[in-house]
Design a protein around this nucleic acid. Structure first.
Length: 114
DNA sequence: CATCTGACGACCG
DNA sequence: GCGGTCGCCAGAT
């Protein structure tokens, strides 16, 4: 399986922002939902500049077990993300993927008025 | 082939 | 807010 689309999406998460597995799965319409997103992230190739640490669980909880959890926490903090007891303040750092960035967007919505 | 195991999340108490 | 159960699904045992 090619998780390419997933990694591409993750790569566009801005510095200092985070995204949940569920949101990721939803944005890409991954069958199987959040868990599928989780598997994809677990298989993230290292050394490709993919900000895997910006993907967290619902509620902002860091779901990784083991030593990696600490690493993720550190990486996030180094970006200015506030992490308390392995929990990110989603209220402040949750990234909302703009639909303009949807990979296959071909519905040029007529006029977005405010 | 049967089971177990997750980088999940909704639900419930 | 926390912990337990359940549905989900690909890979590992």
């Amino acid at each position: 399986m090619s998780w390419n689309p997933v990694y591409r999406f993750v790569q566009r998460i801005p510095r200092g922002k985070v995204l949940t597995y569920g949101a990721l799965a939803g944005a890409l319409r991954l069958p199987g939902g959040a868990r599928t997103a989780g598997r994809a992230m677990a298989a993230t190739p290292s050394g490709k500049g993919i900000p895997w640490h910006r993907v967290i669980g619902d509620h902002g909880k860091i779901l990784i077990r083991g030593p990696h959890a600490l690493l993720q926490k550190k990486l996030l903090e180094s970006e200015g993300v506030k992490v308390t007891e392995f929990r990110v303040d989603l209220k402040r750092h949750l990234w909302k993927p703009p639909k303009a960035s949807r990979l296959k967007d071909k519905s040029p919505r007529k006029r977005i008025r405010e």
